[in-house]
Design a protein around this nucleic acid. Structure first.
Lengths: 338, 338
DNA sequence: GTTGGCACTCTCGGTAGTGGAGTGCCAGTC
DNA sequence: GACTGGCACTCCACTACCGAGAGTGCCAAC
């Protein structure tokens, strides 16, 4: 159905449209891509491509632009992998070099990704499923209010307020000791099991407080994955000032909603490789004229979280995909080592 | 120089332009504001106002629009305080009601402010100058790396990585004890004094590690004020799609830079009352066609941090100022109560 | 000081008209 | 059967032009 030349033409239309931002016609095509056939032939092929739904005309007597389906075919079969430039490689190295803690890593990653792809970058905080609890602390702020702090082996620190109900300091100290003794070294899944039995082991007078604290711990351990997403490169949206209604506004609105972002990244990625959602393929309706390029990141056997970029369907997929892949891999290695 | 009627006219021009978004002419003015004089008289007054630099014409034979100077006069002398609507009052109450910790308070505040003012809101994390250190913890992640955690009396948790250099667990435990004994209960300023002597009290073998940890503590305590700013309501920028180059882009870029935001809030506010920077008065050049309405928040004797909104110079100052003031006060009270 | 009148300026919307880009189709060629 | 040159056709983008409307500044009169 689609012979080689038609595919070549589709590829040419996509690349040309992406770089020129204008509908591309048969004449320009043969000139810029040395197709060795006449414009008329190209036109015949284009008619077929249009019939099949890969390209369309904004109006009669305009050139063609790719449809979502066209981009999809391009991404699946036609895109040649574009290696990163030296400058980009160096940028990745230097950007991450001085990172001190997890927050810093995430912050730097988002900046890096936004800078390389020149698009809006989204990075999810790593979910360290293999991380174990390293330390538990209950800090008394005042007789009524306390703070539960949880540190895991990757250096992530979570906090949660606890209602102490006026419990004496000894009770709190005892509780602290028991919690640490019981839970340190456990992975999240193990915590869930262990914690349930733990409450029963508390002395009677510490029972209510203990139950509250354990509940808080469970909440932190289980709710954690859905916590946080960081966004960067929003000013890059100004490059699409022509697509205000279809791109800029919806993206800004989506960025405000952590839940939406997680859905976007989560449903798109979830694997170790780069995934692309083009336009209407997107699970979130307002972004139907937007594409998401995402990837999981982490070690081979333990995917930790997702990251990606969002931009107009008319984007440079090969470069963007290469950048997302490279950053995901690098961050994965970086986290694994440190 | 400027008699009552001229001031009335200026006020009318500002309010009309803000609500209508169109240059306002003499005829419309007398009709909408019952000025009891003829358009010609108004024109004479407007000519004077223009000469004095309070208003200008986009082009001959258009109506007048206020200049920055005009807005300034309006804000200083002409703006009638616009009380919050019942709905807004209720919004403030309900928004903050279920806040659990500081992060949550800040997040809710930013949403609230963005929603009421329908502009981009910025909230700085509270600097609790009166807060004291409540607990210090050094958690060993692996023989080389540790994590210093600092909890203050307001429930704020800070963390900082520490290079343990393979120090044995007893040394770390000893250090932890000494740190807590020495520093708990101190305010930041006191920590600075005390910490310097503290290092000398360490046993020799803990000296290098101790010095590193103390350095980290000092860094956290002193660097803290400049830490974090949270932004919300960015989609509200889409309401100014006409001012892409002068408003939308610069604001997006500024929002990406925490430093800029802090400068903006800091230099603008710094007092307990609402401060307004109009257009060119702004310390940050790219926002010269933007206004910032900000306020410190906290208790009367202890200003904690700043919050505010940024929007086009053509904004509803009375409402915005009222909203910022109300939110600042409410959050201050909320934090003071615990 | 205020006002009505008036000529003037400038924007905005609508209407033609034109050039150009691109197409589809068809008949002819290899 | 695939490709090509030619040609008529369509539609957009741009320009020019015109008229209506809004608003002004100025002036003479009250």
């Amino acid at each position: 159905m689609l012979d080689d030349r038609k595919l070549t033409i589709l590829r040419a239309i996509v690349t040309d449209y992406v770089s020129m931002r204008e509908p591309v016609g048969s004449r320009a095509l043969v000139e810029r891509y040395q197709l060795d056939v006449s414009p008329a032939t190209v036109r015949n092929d284009m008619a077929v491509l249009e019939e099949e739904g890969y390209i369309m005309q904004p109006h009669t007597s305009a050139g063609r632009i790719p449809t979502d389906k066209g981009y999809r075919l391009f991404v699946d079969r036609l895109g040649t992998v574009k290696p990163l430039s030296g400058a980009e490689r160096r940028a990745i190295e230097t950007f991450m070099a001085g990172a001190v803690d997890i927050d810093d890593v995430v912050r730097r990653t988002v900046r890096l990704l936004a800078q390389i792809t020149r698009q809006v970058a989204i990075v999810q905080y790593p979910i360290l499923s293999s991380a174990t609890i390293r330390h538990l602390e209950v800090v008394t702020l005042n007789p009524e209010r306390g703070l539960l702090i949880l540190v895991n082996s990757s250096g992530k620190v979570d906090q949660h307020p606890v209602d102490l109900g006026g419990a004496p300091e000894e009770t709190v100290a005892d509780l602290r000791g028991r919690l640490n003794a019981a839970l340190v070294g456990l992975a999240p899944s193990q915590v869930v099991e262990r914690a349930e039995r733990l409450v029963e082991e508390f002395p009677d007078d510490a029972r209510p407080l203990g139950a509250a604290v354990v509940a808080a711990i469970l909440e932190m351990v289980t709710a954690d994955p859905s916590t946080r997403v960081v966004v960067g490169g929003v000013p890059n949206l100004t490059r699409f000032s022509d697509q205000y209604e279809t791109t800029v506004r919806p993206v800004l609105e989506a960025l405000e909603e952590q839940v939406v972002l997680l859905r976007l990244l989560g449903e798109v990625a979830g694997t170790g490789d780069v995934t692309v959602r083009i336009g209407h393929e997107n699970p979130y309706a307002p972004l139907r004229s937007t594409s998401v390029v995402a990837s999981g990141y982490g070690t081979d056997d333990d995917i930790w979280a997702n990251l990606g970029v969002v931009g107009p369907t008319r984007m440079d997929y090969p470069s963007t995909m290469a950048a997302v892949r490279a950053v995901a891999r690098y961050v994965g290695r970086f986290l694994a080592e440190g």
